[in-house]
């Protein structure tokens, strides 16, 4: 995988065929069958009731959870042949979790720096990237504040900055606006769909909010662990 120049970084083509995953030895079928195709640069929203398997599906797309059945293909390469999940997440994927999952004892800027550990960028370049993102999100004055001292909305914005810092070609966002007010939610979505630093990543977005889903190119309903093609 040769990384493209940042300005040209475009979305990946994602193809999921018949993904399935259960827990507790098959007693909890979290995702029964998910079929999904995302074109490069396309934003897809997934909506569905609580417990229907949306987060589990995103975990499989992020190679955090191995599917029991089905196939995941990124840019024509089966995920199994892409190397370790860590490497794919490091180089390709940005994740905004359902809960912000910041490290509370690190500052906002340090949290955003985390995905760049082991990247080829110089310390200076890393700092610039972080500053650029925090500035774009109106958080530069909070850069040195410990995550534990940030407000809920600020945390979610920092979590977004962290997901964007490695200029991902695929963004997986799980209810990014679930816990923030509408103004912050709008700011967050603006940056999710048009990330600072350029590029047109592919986006898979999970939400309960029809207004949020409306900003995606397509909205797909999920029910009882099934995401129909």
């Amino acid at each position: 995988m040769i990384p493209e120049p940042p300005s040209l970084r475009r979305g990946v083509h994602l193809l999921a065929r018949g993904l399935g995953r259960s827990f507790e030895g098959g007693l909890v079928p979290a995702v029964r069958r998910a079929d999904l195709e995302v074109q490069p640069g396309e934003a897809v929203a997934i909506m569905g009731p609580t417990g229907c398997g949306k987060s589990t599906l995103l975990a499989m797309l992020a190679l955090l959870e191995p599917p029991e059945v089905g196939e995941l293909v990124l840019d024509g390469v089966p995920a199994a042949r892409l190397g370790s999940g860590e490497r794919v997440r490091r180089e390709l994927v940005g994740i905004v979790f359902q809960f912000h999952y910041l490290l509370p004892h690190l500052s906002a800027a340090e949290n955003v720096l985390l995905p760049l550990a082991g990247s080829a960028l110089s310390a200076q370049q890393r700092r610039e990237r972080v500053a650029e993102l925090l500035h774009a999100l109106g958080l530069e004055h909070r850069a040195r504040t410990l995550a534990a001292r940030l407000s809920g909305g600020e945390r979610q914005l920092v979590a977004l900055a962290r997901a964007l810092v490695n200029r991902p070609r695929l963004i997986l966002a799980d209810e990014p606006t679930g816990a923030v007010d509408s103004a912050t939610g709008k700011l967050l979505l603006d940056h999710l769909f048009a990330p600072a630093g350029g590029g047109t990543p592919s986006i898979v977005l999970v939400t309960h909010d029809p207004a949020v889903a409306g900003r995606a190119h397509r909205v797909l309903p999920m029910r009882d662990g099934v995401l129909p093609a």
Partner: peptide, 11 residues
């Protein structure tokens, strides 16, 4: 979280 952000096991 670190692993989910792409940190290697070794790191």
């Amino acid at each position: 979280i670190l692993r989910a952000l792409g940190w290697r096991r070794a790191t």
